[in-house]
Amino acid sequence: MILYSQFWRVDASRTYGISGTALDWELDWTAPREHLVEESRTWSLLEASEAPAGDNVFVAPTWIDRTDLYLER
C-alpha cells in the first residue's frame, strides 16, 4: 500500500519538489485490513491519474512499512 507520493522535476541537473494532485486523503487505520488495502489502491490510482506529467517529472511513492501499523512501538 502507498502511504503518500511526492513529485519531483529534474531541470538542468537539479531536482525540485513540485505540487502533486492536491488530493488530501488519509486512511482510517481502525478499518479492517481488506478495507485499508482497497482504499489505498483506489486513492493511489486516482492520484496517479491526476499526477503531473512530463519527461523530467518522476514520482517517489512511500510504501507502507510494518512500523506504520504499530504506532505505539
Rank of each mutant, 00 (worst) to 15 (best):
V10T: 12
V10C: 09
V10P: 01
D11L: 06
D11W: 08
D11I: 04
A12D: 11
A12L: 11
A12F: 08
A12I: 06
S13V: 05
R14A: 05
R14N: 11
R14W: 05
R14M: 07
R14Q: 09
T15V: 14
T15F: 04
T15Y: 04
T15K: 06
Y16P: 01
Y16L: 05
Y16N: 07
Y16D: 03
G17V: 11
I18W: 07
I18M: 07
S19R: 13
S19F: 13
S19Y: 13
G20W: 00
G20A: 03
G20F: 00
G20C: 02
G20K: 00
G20M: 01
T21Y: 01
T21N: 03
A22Q: 10
A22K: 06
L23N: 09
L23E: 13
L23H: 08
L23K: 06
L23R: 08
L23I: 04
L23S: 05
D24E: 13
W25F: 08
W25V: 02
W25C: 04
E26D: 14
L27P: 00
L27G: 01
L27Y: 01
L27W: 01
L27S: 02
L27M: 06
D28Y: 01
D28S: 03
W29R: 15
W29P: 00
W29A: 07
W29D: 06
T30V: 08
T30H: 03
T30A: 09
T30Q: 06
T30E: 08
T30I: 06
A31F: 05
A31L: 08
A31Y: 03
A31K: 05
A31T: 05
P32N: 12
P32M: 14
P32C: 12
R33F: 09
R33D: 04
R33N: 05
R33W: 06
E34Q: 15
E34F: 13
E34M: 15
E34R: 15
E34G: 11
E34P: 07
E34K: 15
E34L: 13
H35C: 11
H35S: 09
H35Q: 11
H35W: 10
H35E: 10
H35N: 09
L36N: 00
L36A: 02
L36M: 07
L36V: 04
V37R: 00
V37Q: 01
V37A: 05
E38A: 15
E38F: 15
E38K: 15
E38W: 13
E39A: 10
E39N: 09
E39F: 04
S40K: 02
S40P: 00
S40G: 04
S40W: 01
S40H: 02
S40D: 03
S40N: 04
R41Q: 12
R41H: 14
T42G: 11
T42Q: 14
T42I: 15
T42K: 15
T42P: 03
W43R: 04
W43E: 04
W43F: 13
W43M: 09
W43P: 00
W43C: 04
